[in-house]
C-alpha cells in the first residue's frame, strides 16, 4: 500500500532564513507519526506546508495522493488540523465554535448538530458546551481546539504540540484521545518537544532539529543508534553548578558523555553501575549535593542528546 502521506525534499525559507531544509519522510495509513524536536526546529513550519497554509519554497508532499502544491483544496478536505496556538472565537460558546467550524467543513443541518454532540462528548465538554470559550481553562480550550479538527472525521489529523502549557490531567486526557482516534483508524501526525509523548504515542518518530530531519524510524531503530547505553540523570540542588560537575566527569573511565542541563547532569555510559561510584565521588569532591539519581534505558532523549549534544528542552 502506498503511504497516505509522502513528503519529498520539502523546504521553506522565510526571507534568507531556511526554517525547513529539505525534509523527506512518509506516513502509512493508520500510523501515529511524531515529529520530535526542540523549539524552533521547524515543526510548525512543516505542518503549515503540509496543511496547505504556506506554499513550500521547494519540494512537495502528497496526502491521499493529492499534492499540497497542485491540489490544495482536495488536501484540505481530507486533513484535520489542530494548530499549536488555540484558534477559536473566544466570544462564542464551545458549541457555537464547533457548529461554525463544522459549516466551514461543509457539514449542515442534523448531521452537523449530531456530529457536534459527538465531538463534545469525545472532548468531555458536553456540560460546558453553552459557556463562552473565553471562560474556559487552558486545558478546556485545548480540547475544543482539538475538537474542531475532528468534526469532519478527517483521514489524516495534524496535531501541532496539542499539550503545551496545560495541567497533567488534561494532557492525559488528550493523549488518550489521540490513541483512541488512532485505534478507530485515523492517521495522526503529531509534533512535540516532549520525549515522553513521542515515546508513548508513536509508531515511528522523526527527530527534527534546525530544519533538518536528523533521525527517522521506530523507537527501537532510533535507540539502537545510540548503542547499548544507559543514562544516569543526576538531579542537583538549586545552587549547584551542573556545568562544573559535567566538566569534571569528562574523561572519567567508562563515561561516554556528560551533559549539563537545568539543575541536571546527564551521564551516558554502557553500564550505569560502572560509573556510579565515580560520579558520586566527583560530586562530593566539589561539594555538590546530588538530590537523586535516575537510571534510564536508552530513550529518545538520549538519541537527541547523542545526535546534537544538546538536551531536547532548553
Amino acid at each position: 500500500m502506498p503511504p497516505i502521506l509522502e513528503v519529498k525534499e520539502l523546504k521553506k525559507n522565510y526571507g534568507d532564513f531556511a526554517a525547513v531544509k529539505g525534509v523527506t519522510f512518509d506516513i502509512q495509513e493508520g500510523e501515529i507519526f511524531s515529529l520530535l524536536g526542540p523549539n524552533g526546529a521547524g515543526k510548525t513550519t512543516t505542518i503549515s506546508m503540509l496543511s496547505t497554509l504556506y506554499a513550500p519554497t521547494a519540494g512537495d508532499a502528497t496526502i491521499t495522493g493529492h499534492s499540497v502544491t497542485r491540489d490544495p483544496m482536495a488536501v484540505r478536505g481530507v486533513i484535520g488540523v489542530v494548530p499549536q496556538d488555540i484558534a477559536l472565537y473566544e466570544d462564542l460558546t464551545a458549541r457555537e465554535n464547533l457548529l461554525f467550524w463544522g459549516q466551514m467543513y461543509g457539514l449542515s443541518g442534523k448531521a452537523l448538530a449530531s456530529r457536534v454532540d459527538e465531538v463534545l462528548e469525545q472532548i468531555g465538554l458536553t456540560d460546558k458546551a453553552k459557556n463562552r470559550v473565553k471562560t474556559y481553562s487552558g486545558g478546556m480550550k485545548r480540547r475544543v481546539n482539538i475538537g474542531v479538527g475532528l468534526l469532519h472525521k478527517p483521514r489524516v489529523l495534524f496535531m501541532d504540540e496539542p499539550t503545551v502549557g496545560i495541567d497533567p490531567q488534561s494532557r492525559r486526557a488528550i493523549l488518550d484521545t489521540v490513541k483512541d482516534l488512532n485505534k478507530k483508524g485515523m492517521t495522526v501526525l503529531y509534533t512535540t518537544h516532549y520525549m515522553e509523548e513521542a515515546q508513548e504515542l508513536s509508531d515511528r518518530v522523526g527527530i527534527i532539529d534546525h530544519g533538518e530531519l536528523i533521525a527517522l524510524g521506530t523507537q527501537q531503530e532510533l535507540t539502537r543508534q545510540v548503542g547499548q547505553t544507559e543514562t544516569l540523570i543526576l538531579h542537583l540542588g538549586e545552587n549547584d553548578d551542573p556545568e562544573a560537575l559535567a566538566k569534571s566527569l569528562d574523561g572519567v573511565k567508562d563515561v561516554l558523555e556528560a551533559i549539563a542541563t537545568d539543575h541536571e547532569v546527564s551521564v551516558i555510559a554502557h553500564e550505569a553501575e560502572d560509573v556510579l561510584a565515580a560520579v558520586v565521588t566527583k560530586a562530593n569532591e566539589r561539594g555538590i549535593k546530588i538530590h537523586s539519581i535516575d537510571i534510564r534505558e536508552p530513550n529518545l532523549e538520549a538519541v537527541f542528546l547523542h545526535l546534537t549534544g544538546r538536551a531536547l528542552r532548553d
Partner: peptide, 9 residues
C-alpha cells in the same frame, strides 16, 4: 482563526 479558515476547504 484566519489561518484555520484557510486550511479548511
Amino acid at each position: 482563526t484566519l489561518p484555520r479558515l484557510l486550511v479548511s476547504p
